[in-house]
Design a protein around this nucleic acid. Structure first.
Length: 244
DNA sequence: GTGGGGTGGCATAGTGGTAA
DNA sequence: TTACCACTATGCCACCCCAC
């Protein structure tokens, strides 16, 4: 998932940032409220996490009006808020404003992570009727669609499996989210290298090249197609047959 | 300290489009 | 048809980080 974390620098923020990165998410962290609003409105994220406890500007101001402003810029992303909100009336008002999940200061990362994944899966399902979101695991071993196993950082299709590096995992997740649509090179770069302003195009090529080899070696029935001058798209053998 | 894996930079080859 | 250019794919090498 591409996640925007809005939080002032603190020990808990650094812990959260590290945990989300290690969970194979593409993380962008914003510590300034105005910058965060600008980034949320100008780029596309799957989830926005506002850590209001670590944010003095918000902690000292009206949380409801801050969230109202943020919710107007998240462009359909899952919105989660971490804040000490003992008043249930405030929490329910936040939910009405579009917040998908509220967590208290003593939140569990595992619960936050699973909630974000579940909400993301539902969001994608509502969006295009996809049976399952990238990274969402299934116990149905007969399912032969390509999935990502974030805990093992691997691609799985039926009983076939390929271990991936961090960048390979994120590039493949980015392509899977596009669901056979073309993903622009710049967007893939932002997704897989969120901490870099500029990345050598050869770096993207290298990751794509490695991914192709691994997908071939594991005999997955998907392949990565180059769309000249635009980017890449992931196509299944079924889609290839339809195109013929 | 060392080895292995991941990553990035650079070089080179291949391919397709376009103009002469 | 040929030369040129832009874009892409891939190999090689060096560096960095982390586990042991």
């Amino acid at each position: 998932m591409r996640i925007l974390l809005i939080a002032a620098d603190s020990v808990q923020t650094r812990y959260l940032s590290k945990a989300l990165t290690e969970a194979a998410h593409s993380l962008e962290c914003q510590t300034e409220w105005r910058d965060a609003i600008f980034v949320a409105s100008s780029e596309r994220f799957d989830a926005v996490v506002l850590h209001a406890n670590a944010f003095e500007d918000i902690a000292n101001a009206d949380i409801v009006s801050s969230v109202r402003e943020l919710a107007g810029h998240t462009r359909g992303a899952t919105l989660a808020v971490i804040a000490d909100l003992p008043d249930p009336a405030v929490r329910s008002e936040l939910l009405w404003l579009g917040v998908d999940a509220c967590f208290t200061r003593q939140f569990s990362f595992m619960e936050l992570h699973e909630r974000l994944r579940r909400l993301d899966a539902l969001r994608i399902k509502r969006r295009d009727g996809a049976p399952r979101a990238p990274g969402e695991t299934s116990r149905d071993t007969t399912d032969d669609t390509l999935k990502l196993d974030a805990s093992a950082r691997a691609a799985v299709q039926g009983d076939r499996r390929a271990a991936l590096s961090r960048h390979e995992f994120m590039v493949l997740e980015c392509l899977l989210r596009a669901r056979e649509a073309t993903m622009e090179r710049a967007e893939m770069t932002r997704y897989a290298w969120p901490d870099k302003d500029e990345i050598n195009p050869a770096g993207v090529n290298l990751v794509i090249s490695h991914l192709r080899k691994k997908l071939d070696a594991a005999c997955f029935d998907v392949r990565i197609e180059t769309v000249a001058g635009v980017g890449y798209r992931l196509v299944t053998s079924r889609a290839m047959q339809r195109a013929c």
